[in-house]
Design a protein around this nucleic acid. Structure first.
Lengths: 140, 140
DNA sequence: TAATTGTTATAGTACAAATAAAACAATTAG
DNA sequence: CTAATTGTTTTATTTGTACTATAACAATTA
């Protein structure tokens, strides 16, 4: 798990950290039970402040991706098992909302419905192909 | 064209204004040649500062959605006709990037590829159905 | 007991968002 | 031509977020 920070990016550092860890969870590079580096050590590795990493971890905890316990550290959570149906539904609503926004902007720019759906399917395929932990066949 | 501002939202006011106008362009409620209210009058209507509206309009101008001329005002542009192929390609790249991000987060949350594609298709259909200016059949 | 870990507090710098008041420049209406 | 309207620019203030810095506190682990 190697993180790279772009200090010139408009995206806040703590969100860059958060996104890359979520990415690793998506691809299976990080799995439930895996330990994340401590707040202090990751901060030292990245050359950022301790609080910046702590904020990234706190976001991951609030989103259900990780659990934090002082003394023992931060561990990737079993999100599928720990999520309530309500939270799951909220996630789905947020996804729908973002897709709606993208579709509308695409249309405003003169793009076709077919083009949007094709592009979405292509990106989904790419996201579900990136799998360092196993073959795509495992997920049907 | 009625705009509503949520002053408690995390989304900046000028982006709320921008988004709702893009929304209107997408549905056809606003078309090329249509005039937008002046910076000062819209600011007065919404109860915000003149500069906030001006910034929203400037963003729309930079994105190719509108043209601004002092004395005459702000007018919706014919975006499809005025866009260069390079800009069009950049828009497509940005869309792909956002879809990629959403697909990865969906997978990280335990969602399936099929679910993502289905949801994207549904939102696209909704976006292309919202049409106050004509029937869906007009666009094939 | 000592080290490590997350947590909290305080303070300071930097930047963006929004507001405010005022003036300037180009276009339009009378 | 004149006056009103419109976008543009300048300067300044307030507010909130991001990030850094230092320090201490609390729970777990070795």
């Amino acid at each position: 798990m190697i993180l790279s920070i772009d200090f010139n990016s408009e995206e806040p550092i703590y969100l860059q950290i958060r996104s890359q860890i979520v990415h690793a969870v998506a691809t299976g590079e990080l799995q439930a039970g895996d330990a994340l580096p401590s707040v202090r050590s990751l901060a030292a590795d990245l050359g950022v402040n301790m609080h910046t990493v702590n904020k990234a971890y706190a976001v991951l905890r609030d989103e259900g991706y990780a659990t934090m316990r002082r003394g023992s550290g931060v561990v990737i959570a079993d999100r599928a098992a720990s999520l309530s149906p309500e939270t799951r539904s909220l996630d789905r609503d947020r996804l729908a909302e973002e897709l709606c926004r993208l579709a509308l902007e695409h249309r405003a720019q003169g793009g076709s419905r077919e083009e949007f759906v094709t592009l979405a399917a292509a990106q989904a395929a790419a996201a579900y192909d990136a799998a360092p932990n196993g073959s795509a066949a495992e997920r049907g």
